[in-house]
Amino acid sequence: MSINRRQFLKIAGISTILGIGGTAVVNGLRKGDLEASQMEPNPEGLTAKRWGFVVDMSKFKSEADVKRVIASCHDIHNVPDFGNPKDEVKWIWKDDYEHVFPGQENEYATEEMKGKPFMVFCNHCAYPACVRVCPTKATFKRKDGIVMMDMHRCIGCRFCMAACPFGARSFNFRDPRGTDANGQPFIKHLDPEFPTRTKGVVEKCTGCYERLAKGKMPACVEASNGGIVFGDLEDPNSEVRKLIGKNYTIRRRPELGTQPSIYYIIGGNENA
């Protein structure tokens, strides 16, 4: 199945030379036909040179804004809720300034700043440490900048979790399909269109690759009412680049050189 025309020509050529033409070529042809059937990208799919996010903190006004965004992701991706921090799996969540930007804390910051709910999820770094360390290429970087997980291949060594300087990765310490002591399933609403994970693999935000392929924006972006903006960082006319050009933005731990692709507009008062 997995031969392309070039390989087919090679097989056909070699088998003819060896004089065993006959059946080998016929088989090759049949398979070649199927390959002529080919695979192609979805024409509606969104494409970019390097996807990135801008998180505009001024749009996160209430707890409801945060919850809506988290639910929009966790519901469609069958992210389990184990109800304890030890086994916790999360793709997108919130934390406060001091913990999202350690090393940039400001002890005299306003109470308003200290209390802001910063949305955190995988940074889809340009030079991701997790991809560098993965021994099976189970986590890899796509051409469009999305740092992707191949759950079929992950052996659960958790090297990526040690390597990620952003704590973006979660491990399935137990079976996400299971139920708690009261018989309640860990995945409250099973979305039949998306898989779950199995115990023993690492997972994280995958940039809604399944939605991008269908021409849709990531779920959190759609649910955030402009709080999270998504676009091509390499395209100077993209909305993300315009926002980054107009506002003062910061990224998490840029000194580590991974080049995170999430930019935060801190806002604050008038000096945005």
Binding site: L34, S37, M39, P41, F140, M148, D150, A213
Partner: peptide, 16 residues
């Protein structure tokens, strides 16, 4: 199909 979709982001299959 799996490798194509997950790893190459190519997800339309055109059959024979």
């Amino acid at each position: 199909w799996r490798d194509s979709v997950v790893r190459d982001n190519v997800r339309v299959y055109v059959n024979s």
